[in-house]
Each structure stands twice: as C-alpha cells, then as structure tokens.
Amino acid sequence: MPADLPLEQPVELKLLRYWELFYLFVLVATLIALQLQAAEPLPERTGGSALLVAGFGWYWWFGHRPLVRTAGEISTPVGVLAVTGVLVFFFGALLLAPGAAWITPSVISQVFWLLSLRTSVVAVVLISFMPGLISLSRGGNIAEQLATTIPAGVIFCALALMLGLFVHRIAQQKEDQTVLIERLAASRSEVSRLSHEAGTAAERERLAREIHDTLAQGFTSIVALVQAIESELDTDPAAARRHLELTARTARENLDEARSMVAALTPSALTSGTLADAVRRQADRLAAETALTVTCRIDGPLPKLATAAEVVLLRAAQEALHNTRRHAHATTVSLELSIVDEKVRLTVRDDGVGFDPDAPRSGYGLAGMAARARQVGGELSVHSGAHGGTELVVEVPA
C-alpha cells in the first residue's frame, strides 16, 4: 500500500500473502485457459502467456519486495513503477491473446496494495475497460462487441471499486485504531506519571506526619529534659539523674521510631504490646517528665483493630499530649479509650487555657491528625474555648 495507508506487521503482510496466492492461482488458471483456446494461434498464446508470467515477475521484484521490506510503507513512485510494469505486460498479453483478460481480477487486486485510493480508481477503470477496447480494435460487429464488452467492463469495474473501497476502509480503520492505541498508551503513561506524583506527594505527607508525631515530639521532650537537668545539676542531683535516664530512654525510643519509619513498619510502640499498653506508656512518660497529673483509663478489652487504625489512635494520643505539654499550661490531663457505637474512641482532656479550634493555625498537628483519621474512615473533633479546658476526641471504626 502507499504511504498514506500504513501497514502493520505481521497482520497486513500475512493478508498480502493471501492476495498474492490469489494472483498466482488466477495466473495459472489463465495460462491453462490460454493453452486450451485452440482457436488462437499457438505463437500468440505462447507470447501472451510469457508476458503474463513476466508481469508477475515484475510485480514480485518491484512490488512484493518493497512491500515486505518496508512493511507496506512504500512510496508513491515505487508503487507507480510496480503497477506500470504489470499493466504494460498485461496490455501486451491482451494484444496477443484476448483470453489473457481472465487475469484481470488478480491484477486489480494488487493495484490497491501498490497505489493510493485515488490513483487506484483511475487504474481500475482503465484495466476494466481495456480488454473491451482491444477487442473493438480487432474489428468485427461493433454493436455485438459493445453489447458484450461494456456490461463486462462495468461489472468488473464496479466489483473492483467495491473491493478497493472495502480494503481501503479496513486499512483506514486499522490506522485509526493504531492512532487510538498510541493515544491510549500516552494517556496511560500520563496517568502513571500523575499517579506516581500523587503517590510521592502522599508519601511525603505521610512522612511529614510521622516525623511531626514521633521524632519532633521526642526531640522536644529531650530538649525539655536537658533544660530540667541543667537547672537541677547543682540543686537536686537525684532529680537530674532521673531526668537523665528519661532523656536516654526518650532518645532510644526516638531511634526506634526512626528505624521503623525508614523500614515502613508498624510504630515501635505497637510492636512491643497492644494499643492500650502504648497509650498507657505515653501517659506514664508525660507524668514522669512533667509535674502534670495524668490519668489513663481503658474501658474493657478493646477489639482487634487494623494496624492503620491503631496508628491513628496512638499518633492522636501523642499529638494531644504534646500539645497539652507545650501550649495548654494545664495541671491535669486524662486519657480514655472506650468503645462507643461500634467505634473505638480516644478522648484526651486537660484543664489548660484552651484555644479557638476554628482559628487559623500554622502548625501541622491537628490538620495531620484529622487527615489520619479520615484515611481510616474515622473523624476528629476538638472542643475548647476561652474559658479554659480542651477535649479532643478521635473515633475510628471498630
């Protein structure tokens, strides 16, 4: 086919082989028919047969080989050269032996492989009516010949054009499908890129929450303990040693969290016990590191939660206690884990100065806490006010 009708290996070339077998079959049948036409002189029949065989050889060398070599993407000059040679041999055979017209269907079939649709139409009309014109040139009863050649030419031409349009439509559909597949592949590539970017952004957000809820809070505790140690070294060595032990323990826990974060594992506080144990340890640590009165209550055995839900509740407890320690100026803090309406609820209350939950904040704590809860189908609510006291509630499905 011409360059405007690209072929795709191996389907089109396999189809081409079928058409070439058809060409060869019709050629053999025509050669046999010519030899059986005893009314024609033997030299003319032999010459016509030789020209038909030469036409097939011309097609094979100048048509088939370029089609196979370029997977059907032959240029217009190459296609014109191949068709011109085939037609010259075909018309020469007709001049010698009119019976050579039997090969017309196979010649027409190859035209559509070698020329563009518009050029093929011109060639098909010429091929269809050429046997009749040559017959008229031989003389005889013109009326009878016209009555025979014109209907035959019209039928051949109509069938050939229908076949050509059908083949062209199939090729055009394949071309459209190729373009569609390329666009689909490009769309998939774009979706993959966007998904990768979205996944990267989500992972960055997750790491930001993890760092904020674990390492940053741990370093804050270490800084506070070091400051306490500095003030106690001369006045209360025993308290300084106790705070030094707490500093070392906090540093080790921070190191464990960092290792777990790098390995994308469950938080270290949950690997060594249950969620209730982890929450109690957070309360005990706050009580040991500060002068706050901290209470922790667990209502009954908690149901087994998904790891993601346990992480949400643990991080919420850590963030709430961290905020209380830094901002609330409270004297008492209470933590409670309970089951309410098939949900596990964490409640953290303090008697501090309170704040406006709706006011703009530059910190990441509450926003990250809310985002975590939404990811597991839970929710966060905060109740506070100017009169003091704050209550933070996180619920996740049980």
Score class of each variant (00 low, 15 high):
Ser221Ile: 04
Ile222Cys: 10
Val223Trp: 00
Ala224Gly: 05
Leu225Phe: 02
Ile229Arg: 05
Glu230Asp: 15
Ser231Ile: 04
Asp236Ser: 14
Arg242Ser: 10
His243Pro: 02
His243Val: 05
His243Tyr: 02
Leu246Phe: 02
Thr247Ser: 15
Ala251Asp: 02
Asn254Gln: 12
Leu255Thr: 15
Asp256Ser: 13
Glu257Met: 13
Ala258Met: 12
Arg259Met: 14
Ser260Tyr: 04
Val262Leu: 15
Leu265Pro: 02
Leu265Gly: 15
Thr266Lys: 07
Thr266His: 03
Ser268Lys: 08
Ser268Arg: 13
Thr271Glu: 12
Ser272Pro: 01
Gly273Cys: 09
Leu275Asn: 04
Ala276Glu: 04
Ala276Cys: 08
Asp277Cys: 07
Val279Pro: 00
Arg281His: 06
Gln282Val: 14
Ala283Val: 10
Ala283Ile: 02
Arg285Tyr: 03
Ala287Ser: 11
Ala288Ser: 15
Ala288His: 03
Thr290Val: 05
Thr290Gln: 07
Val294Glu: 02
Arg297Asp: 09
Arg297Asn: 08
Leu302Gly: 08
Leu305Trp: 03
Ala306Asp: 15
Ala306Arg: 10
Ala306Thr: 13
Ala308Val: 04
Ala308Tyr: 04
Ala308Lys: 10
Glu310Tyr: 02
Val312Lys: 00
Val312Glu: 00
Val312Leu: 01
Leu313His: 03
Leu313Pro: 00
Arg315Tyr: 08
Arg315Gln: 15
Arg315Trp: 02
Ala317Met: 04
Gln318Phe: 03
Asn323Arg: 13
Arg325Leu: 07
Arg325Cys: 03
Arg326Ala: 01
His327Pro: 01
His327Cys: 02
His329Glu: 10
Val333Asn: 03
Leu335Lys: 06
Leu337Val: 01
Leu337Glu: 01
Ile339Leu: 14
Val340Met: 11
Glu342Ala: 15
Asp350His: 02
Gly352Ile: 09
Val353Tyr: 00
Gly354Ser: 09
